[in-house]
Amino acid sequence: MSGTTLDLRGRTTPPGQRNLGTDVDPQVERIARTPEFQQLVSERTKFGWTLTILMLIVYFGFIGLIAFDKSLLAVKVGGTASLGLFAGVFVILFAFALTGIYVARANTRFDALSDALKRSVAR
């Protein structure tokens, strides 16, 4: 069962107060300490949460407008179509675009960092 194969009998403590030298899995500890790992994780975590928050703002902004300011969404934009219609389609396209932005960055930057990490661990 791969879910339990990591042979980790020892303990580690949070990075801030890391107490090395105990019976920690040396491989894990070594990877976690590499600058490549720390850079990968900090960049990707920051990026992922930024995009998540953007998605939350846009979606709940849309729902908020529907709940609190219907008249704004009823405003006509060029003939029959209303602003709400464009807003709804925008939310859909925005969600797709965000996933695209994430994947583009992950395919280039994060995968490169990840490869560098694997090379550095293999050394």
Binding site: G48, T52, M55, Y59, G88, V89, I92, A95, T99, Y102
Partner: peptide, 21 residues
């Protein structure tokens, strides 16, 4: 009319969250 779009958006916006987290 428009109200249908509320559901369409709701069903889609979970996917970016799945991807990012």
């Amino acid at each position: 009319g428009f109200d249908g779009l509320i559901y369409s958006t709701g069903f889609l916006v979970g996917w970016p969250i799945v991807l990012f987290l």
